[in-house]
Simulated assay, not measured.
Amino acid sequence: MKNKKLTLLFVFILLFTFIFSGCEYKDESQVISPSGENNLVVHFIDIGQGDSIFIQLPNGQTSLIDGGSKIYEDTLCDYLTKLGVKKIDYLVATHPHEDHIGGLPKVIKQFDIGKIYMPDKTSNTKIFEELLNEIKSKGLHITVGHGGDKIAEDDEFSYDIFAPNNDDYGEINNYSIVTKIQFKGVSFLFTGDAENISEKEMIDKNYDLKSDILKVGHHGGRTSSTKEFLEEVMPKYAVISAGKDNMYNHPHKETLDRLKAIGAQVYRTDESGTVIVTTDGSNIKISTVKSKSDSQDKVFIGNKNTKVYHSEDCGSLPKEENRVYFNTKEEAEKSGYKSHEKCIK
């Protein structure tokens, strides 16, 4: 009896010590550490009409593919900060469109950056210039990405570039850096805004396109995700990053029909919010996180030349170099801008 009491007392002391010694229980279905804890964790972040994908590699390193539009730079940086991110080891700017690189200058300024990958394509926009200036100011260098290059690998995973495979495209989207991550038995294909020309080149190059999870090209636009390409990839899951009620009507019905035809289960950020895929290299777990509100990221876009401001989904938006952003109508009008009569009621 005495020994039994001593045993119970010992167990009680251990429990007491565990509870009050600073150890903290965490529900791992809700909290994911920056290292991924030997898992591969991919966050398709809901940042409106744009792309931003944060990747926690199984070796503890991280990667960010694109940074969405500048109007969502705070949303992106706050998301990374809440995950406890300090460093981004591999930053990939797929191509120089504002809805893919807009948030990257602030990301580079706020976080430690390892290698930066960009295609051999420039742009004369203000946001592209801002991105280059921020890279220069931190003493970083750009690695030009081509099909066939390797970003990283170890015994359990590989991170490869499949496109671009040319240096003379008529459409900027086809310069998109396309990457694939293979982690044990599970694979992801990230296609930026690559369209049918780039897709055909990847097929002709005989790349191993087969992937479990596909980041659908160009926000689900009809000029990407051709039947031939999807039949090579044959994803179980397809993720589309698009803004709610966007002016381009992304994703297009033709693309959704093609994805349905191959049996892919589709997740959309405009419907489900942020999509998080976690895998141990065998099993796949997908969860979604809704944004707090649809109105929190509402912005108005002014034209520096006409001094007129528009809603972000207006069909008459100015070129990027002529834009100025406002959080409210009042802010725009205090700055001397008048509302566009067709889109602002």
Rank of each mutant, 00 (worst) to 15 (best):
T7M: 13
T7R: 15
F12D: 11
I13C: 15
L14C: 11
L15W: 02
F16H: 07
C23M: 12
E28K: 15
S29Y: 06
Q30E: 15
I47H: 00
I47N: 02
G60A: 02
D66Q: 10
G68Y: 01
G68W: 00
G68I: 00
L76H: 00
C77A: 04
C77E: 03
L80Y: 03
T81H: 07
T81M: 05
T81S: 15
I88H: 11
L91G: 08
V92C: 04
T94M: 00
P96Y: 00
G102L: 07
K106A: 08
K109C: 07
Q110N: 14
I116K: 10
Y117W: 14
T125M: 01
L132T: 08
E134T: 13
E134L: 03
S137D: 13
G139S: 08
I142K: 04
H146V: 06
G147L: 06
G147C: 06
K150G: 10
D154G: 01
F162C: 03
D167K: 12
D167W: 07
I177G: 01
I177S: 01
V178A: 04
I181W: 10
K184N: 13
V186S: 09
V186E: 13
S187G: 09
S187F: 07
L189A: 08
E195I: 08
N196C: 06
E201Q: 05
I203G: 05
Y207E: 09
D208P: 06
S211C: 12
H218F: 13
G221K: 12
R222D: 13
R222Q: 10
T226P: 03
F229I: 05
M234N: 15
K253T: 11
K260L: 02
A264R: 01
Q265N: 12
E271S: 11
E271R: 07
V275T: 06
T279G: 08
N283K: 15
N283S: 13
S287H: 06
T288M: 05
S291K: 11
S291N: 14
D294C: 06
S295L: 12
S295P: 05
F300M: 04
K304P: 08
T306H: 09
K307H: 14
V308F: 08
D313G: 05
K319N: 14
E321M: 04
N322E: 15
E330M: 06
E333A: 09
C343R: 09
I344R: 11
I344S: 11
